[in-house]
Simulated assay, not measured.
Amino acid sequence: MSLQTNAMAEAIELARHARLDTAPNPRVGCVLLDERGGVIGRGATQAVGGPHAEVMALRDAQAKGLSVIGATAFVTLEPCSHHGRTGPCCDALAAAGVRKVVASLADPNPLVSGQGFERLRAAGIDVEIGPGAEEARELNLGFFSRMIRKTPWVRLKVAASLDGKTALPDGTSQWITSEAARADGHAWRARAGAVLTGVGTVLEDDPRLDVRLAETPRQPPLVVVDSQLQTPPAARIFEPARPVWIYAAAPDAAAQAALEARGATVRYLPNPHSKVDLAAVLRDLAAREVNELHVEAGHKLNGSLLREGLVDELLLYLAPKLMGDGLGIANQPHAAGALTRLDQALALEFKSFEGLGPDLRIVARIAGRDRF
């Protein structure tokens, strides 16, 4: 493996380790090599408002007393070129005397989108684009989705038996899968920009829907789809310290006041059928800088999201059990209603399989959803 390949692989690994910290910014890693190919600095993007990966790598080299003049920076995304919460990284690299920048991808943010590369070249810095592109983009699918599609990347989490049942006929669902699978599910919650559920789940299960079984630097906001504002102010979703965003269809001043007294933010986004406009919710969440949306809901809301084409991938935990009668993953998930041909089924692509204790975790992506 070449020095260049090694350096970019390390930069991607730095970005991967930062995946819980950077939101809403992209997950970015940077490695600096001196002219002999030795590593002189490493860095990853910090929590929002903190330094980006390039600045962290420059500071790392400085702390070691190493010069970066003539160095090559391997970075997993185009260095930013605008003044946002921090200054432009392309200017920091140029001021430090870096000779070359190797970047995996152009930044999809329209405030950058090639301008960082242009400013680097204008400063006399060589620019190479492409190494590690697939891995770097996969790490930041949510950020790319928000910038390009103006909606978050939507991941629907389901725990089910081997025959696809998520609950008994009476709604009992705790616990179909093992502790190992539940802990893994909490880790996926932790990486999300927000967690979404429906009021039915709140009323039936009274869950907290926070991150408890995995390490996290923050609790992601909770989103509740609640057309008639039925969420009880005493619900356990208000116990964790985090934002709670409730989307409703029909105004109810008294219910809204009671929920806002618990710290919730209520927004009305009705569709023509007096239900919450789910597509509008996704656009609003993107405006709130949510990159990845983690859905844990019941079969009705799951079905609505799938039927409207709003789900990008499924995070499916399968327990080695057969339950027979019970509730399924989604109620009426197809826009055409009941299927009459097998080729009408919603096609998915398996992305990964992993055993977790006695259970199996499958990540399956809606075919073609990542091509934007």
Rank of each mutant, 00 (worst) to 15 (best):
G326M: 01
D91M: 08
Q174H: 15
A319T: 08
P232R: 07
R182K: 15
D205K: 06
R189N: 12
V98A: 12
G114Y: 11
A338T: 11
R137F: 01
G164Q: 12
V101F: 07
L306T: 04
D163V: 09
S145N: 02
F74Q: 00
T177E: 10
R208Q: 13
V199Y: 00
R267I: 11
A234D: 15
A214I: 07
A18Q: 00
R371P: 01
L156Q: 14
G357H: 01
V363S: 12
E134S: 08
M147Y: 01
H294P: 03
L278F: 14
A194V: 08
R99H: 15
V75H: 07
A73F: 09
A53P: 05
R191P: 03
A122G: 02
G50A: 07
G303S: 09
V75A: 00
A15S: 09
H273V: 04
G70L: 09
M147N: 03
W175S: 08
T265I: 05
G41P: 02
L314K: 02
G309H: 05
N271A: 07
G124L: 07
M147V: 00
G193Q: 04
E239I: 11
L356Y: 04
G357Y: 06
T177V: 14
H334S: 12
L348I: 06
D284N: 10
A347W: 12
A319I: 04
V55A: 03
V31I: 07
A335Y: 13
V31A: 14
P272M: 11
L209N: 09
P232A: 11
E134D: 10
R155V: 02
L305E: 03
A264E: 05
H186I: 04
P272N: 14
I366W: 10
A190S: 14
K150N: 10
R218G: 09
A183Q: 13
T22I: 05
P221S: 07
S67H: 12
F74G: 00
C80T: 09
T72V: 12
Q4E: 13
P110L: 07
V127H: 03
A338H: 13
T197S: 02
V281W: 01
T86R: 15
L229S: 00
Q344G: 15
A255Q: 11
P221T: 06
L33C: 13
R85C: 04
N6T: 11
K100Q: 15
R119E: 11
L141F: 04
A286E: 02
E118G: 10
G357D: 08
G116E: 01
P152H: 10
V28Q: 01
P220H: 07
T265K: 15
A159V: 05
P131C: 06
L293V: 03
F372G: 09
R369M: 09
E135H: 07
A345M: 13
L285K: 03
L342Y: 15
D34Q: 12
A122P: 04
K165N: 08
P152G: 09
K275Q: 06
R218T: 07
I362G: 05
I148A: 04
A234E: 14
V224K: 05
F117V: 05
V266N: 06
A279F: 04
N291P: 06
A214C: 10
N6S: 13
I125T: 09
N6Y: 12
E239F: 05
K300D: 08
A181F: 11
A235C: 13
G357L: 08
P79A: 05
V127E: 06
A136P: 02
G198P: 07
L314I: 03
L327K: 05
T22R: 05
A248E: 01
T76D: 01
T72P: 09
D34P: 10
R19W: 02
D163L: 10
A103S: 15
